[in-house]
Design a protein around this nucleic acid. Structure first.
Lengths: 345, 345
DNA sequence: CTGTTAGCGCTTTCAT
DNA sequence: ATGAAAGCGCTAACAG
């Protein structure tokens, strides 16, 4: 690739002028401009992104960070990414996905701050190192989910009200007369699992009912949701007389459906299922899944918008505001939950 | 953030030494190394990605490029991205998603070669400008899909055999006795739509049957698949006596299911549906969708692997090989297709 | 409106 | 095994 110097020479102008033709940062006479553009065209020149970045210290890229050991996106993440992208699209930012293995993240030889202007952090956990690390690097950051305690004050984040979401789901099942409600919860180190458990317990207390600790089971971090849903449901449905189940996500619910079908247990007649989920999915279950919609697309969009706004503020040297955005969840009544009285088992 | 100069000063060594501690490119005595690392730790230093990039001309990032006007990923893309990421994960590459609007892509002020070492191009179209552009920039590129004619010789790409996939689907329906088979095809400027149409016609010829040109309908580029599937099916099912339909993707198939349900047309008794699709999806339809699986995850993985291999070759200055990889498709017999004899309409 | 010059933070010869 | 100095390609003052 040609450099700015060659273009300047060919066009008979200075480097600075060429630079300004491409950045538009100061007025250039029409004739010079066309001469430069022609020279650039014949030399097949495009400005070098890295050199520019080094000079202006802005990459026009934002990062998306999720825990490095699970390098696979889910349905929820897909919507979320689409939400983020739609904002990037409007603002001229690129999206960098860092899915490096821990090996690369920690090796001295690969140690480097990601080449981004700001970052969106997914799936915060209770002992999350990432947030403090970014703060130390002075990298604008926004968390999707509930940040671990202590940090939530100084930080922007967007989240659902997961306490309320879990309460709604649990309360729905309690009202249907269920007493024994198993809850296949998110991995226990995620902050979201704490919130949801709180909501679950709250619903029981409100209803004047009692739950048992062992009814709440966390998905092991490394395990596939679908698989764990399947094996857990199989185990539970064999031993206990659990008439209702809440699942962490739609893949997990699929596992439960699968297990139930295999054992000849009918949904919702013999077993009620309700789940957290991503919008577009639930209608594809049969029976359609009763669920709380997380609206991943909105979460992603809100997060990106907030981050990009902060970046703009920073440029204008205003103070950074710690915005907190709660994206509402929607309760969708499907056909997978029914009153306990029709349970025949 | 501290710079390498400050670290060097604090550790009482030269810049070059600090550099080599972090790159591991030449041996450093243990005592100097620890002194440097300590200095770096107290100053909170990390090597600057852009400065390094400018010097070594490698970004360790690859790009994922899709047509800029549709900045939303589909289910198929999700699997594909996951496939790409799993390879990046292993090789220490980051993934850059460029979803800039056309405005940004073409403005002189935003003109710049993406800061990537190589790129994966999605959804090639017949008049695709992107490929030649990349070739001109001498950027290693790999296409997912069938490149436009003329370019396929000099280029690496990974693709399904879409001619065969369409033939299988069509032939399946023909064998069931269907004669009038509507085909809601991919947007017509995509190379994939040409291939699939070829396969569709091939099946008819093989069966000694005749098709009509108007049975093949392309999804307009800007339209949502689900919406177009719905409106088209509604229209077709009203006017014509079409007993079978092939759809471009699962969202489109959903639209067809929806339309059929609304009109009281039963699948598969009154209407057979078969579709191209992404694996995990089809089982969620009721009835389960007869389909050909594209294996997006494999496509993404193969593409990334090939690209990363080429980048490695380039470093070793060997010649670039134009690899062509065909990822097999799987025909899945669902319950959405049935012999025409049970059609009662 | 345009030219000149000094960096941006790192890597990489070439010395020692 | 380490240091010194010359860039990588661009931008940003400062002049004019």
């Amino acid at each position: 690739m040609a450099t700015i110097t060659e273009v300047a020479k060919l066009a008979g102008v200075s480097k600075g002028t060429v630079s300004n033709v491409f950045s538009g940062k100061r007025p250039i006479s029409q004739q010079v401009k066309t001469r430069v553009l022609e020279a650039a065209a014949t030399l097949n020149y495009k400005p070098n992104y890295w050199a520019r970045t080094l000079a202006i210290k802005k990459t026009k890229m934002i990062g998306l960070n999720f825990l490095s050991d699970e390098h696979q996106f889910s349905q929820f993440h897909l919507s979320l990414i689409n939400g983020v992208l739609s904002e990037c699209y409007k603002s001229g930012y690129r999206l960098l996905i860092n899915a490096l293995s821990n090996e690369y993240q920690t090796d001295i030889e690969h140690l480097a701050r990601d080449p981004i202007d700001g970052e969106i952090l997914l799936d915060p956990s209770l002992d999350d190192q990432r947030i403090e690390e970014r703060l130390r690097e002075n990298l604008p950051v926004i968390v999707i989910g509930n940040p671990p305690s202590g940090l939530s004050e100084s930080l922007s984040y967007v989240d659902n009200d997961n306490v309320e979401a879990a309460r709604k789901l649990t309360s729905h099942l309690l009202k249907l007369g269920h007493e024994h409600i198993s809850f296949i919860n998110a991995p226990s180190q995620r902050t979201v699992s704490v919130d949801r458990r709180t909501g679950y317990e709250k619903a029981f207390v409100e209803a004047g009912m009692t739950y048992r600790d062992e009814w709440v089971i966390s998905i092991p971090p490394e395990e596939s949701s679908a698989e764990f849903g399947y094996t857990t449901a199989t185990r539970l449905l064999k031993k206990e007389k659990c008439g209702a189940m809440i699942t962490d996500n739609e893949r997990c619910a699929m596992g439960v459906y699968h297990a139930a079908k295999e054992m000849g247990i009918r949904i919702p007649e013999d077993l009620s299922v309700a789940s957290f989920s991503e919008e577009s999915f639930v209608s594809r279950f049969s029976p359609p899944l009763t669920s709380v919609q997380l609206n991943g697309g909105h979460l992603g969009q809100a997060a990106a918008r907030q981050l990009l706004a902060e970046l703009k503020m920073e440029e204008a040297e205003s103070t950074r505001s710690a915005g907190r955005i709660i994206v509402p969840t929607d309760f969708i009544q499907g056909a997978s939950s029914a009153p306990i009285k029709i349970n025949i088992r």
